[in-house]
Simulated scan of single mutants.
Amino acid sequence: MKKKAGILLSLTLAASTILGACGNTDKSSEKKEGKESKNFKVGMVTDVGGVDDKSFNQSAWEGLKKFGKDNKLKENEGYRYLESTKDADYIPNLAKFVDTNYNLTFGIGYKMQESIKETAGKNPKKQFAIVDAVVDKPNVTSITFKDHEGSFLAGAVAAMTTKSNKVGFIGGIKSPLIQKFESGFMAGAKTVNPNIEVISQYAEAFDKPEKGSVLASAMYGQGIDVIYHASGATGNGVFTEAKNRKKKGENVWVIGVDRDQNQEGMPENVTLTSMVKRVDVAVEKVSQKAKDGKLEGGKKEEFGLQDDGVGIAKTTDNVKKVNPEIVTKVEEFKKKIVSGEIKVPSTPDEYKTYEASLKK
């Protein structure tokens, strides 16, 4: 009997040990998972426009903040940004995130293309993402948008609004990216009215509001009454000039870019509409993929009208005041673009071909 009792006691102790070990393993696994989740870090480097550019840097930061809050990460610990005041800041800022073991680092704006390429090449085990450019590296996710499609709608709105039959485009730095905005805008305007006059100017900067004011002043001075800007913080000057003229009784408009810029036109209410580019959504989605371990570097993520990556802002009060039918017409154009019936030009050469086809 003693021998049987001893065996039973041994089995009981063994079972307790096994169960205890299982329990410890579960707790250890949960603790490890929680630690990994807590330690996930994502950083963002702005271009020279700064995080408060009222445009794509700000939109990117809004997306990153939403991701952080949704995942219960602390700002400046789990997610943060570094501002660049000059091009020379790009690589040092990217390096700061690499050196502090961030899991994913965003470079916002095509001007950071070479800096991301160089930094990613030197740090193959780190993940990077860039907005508005393509970097062919296995650890870089390239986020691009069909800016020309959204800009087409902006051009159509401008053409259906103008009283002078003259509209303007102000770009930041003349580059293939900003020429996508210009080409789409001109195509939309000319589709509505082949005889409309479209004047384009470039500020050659994304961080010079004073230059935006000067260019806008010249355009409004020559009779243009609607200006579409794709110039980052430089566009703040366009709004300033429009508001000053509105105070004097002039009926002029600005079409914003990247995010709904309705508030930038207040209190004089000069924002006709905005070409919204969902940089916030793109940044949020890519960040979540990285956190979930599903981000595959070396791929291109493109957002267009079809997936609401670009489009006209939901704030349509001023457009409806001009003519309620404009909103309906914009939806018709959108459907034609998504279906392929309208192929929006994205380069100056494609635009020339498109414009020629309108005259046939």
Rank of each mutant, 00 (worst) to 15 (best):
S10R: 14
L19Q: 01
G20V: 05
A21D: 03
G23V: 00
S28M: 07
E36A: 09
G50W: 03
D52C: 08
G63Y: 08
D70H: 09
K72Q: 14
L73I: 01
K86H: 06
D87G: 05
P92C: 11
P92S: 01
A95K: 02
K96A: 15
T105Q: 03
T105W: 06
T105L: 01
E114L: 07
K122I: 10
I130K: 06
V140I: 03
T141F: 06
S142Y: 13
G155R: 03
A158R: 11
S164P: 10
S164T: 15
F169I: 02
F185I: 05
Q201D: 11
Y202Q: 10
Y202C: 13
E204R: 00
F206N: 01
S217A: 07
G221H: 10
I224C: 06
I227M: 10
I227D: 06
A230I: 07
K246D: 05
W253H: 14
E268M: 09
E268G: 15
N269D: 15
L272G: 03
T273C: 06
S274Y: 05
D280C: 00
V283E: 00
Q288E: 12
E296R: 15
F303D: 10
D308M: 09
K314D: 05
K329W: 14
K329D: 14
E332H: 11
I337T: 13
S339Y: 09
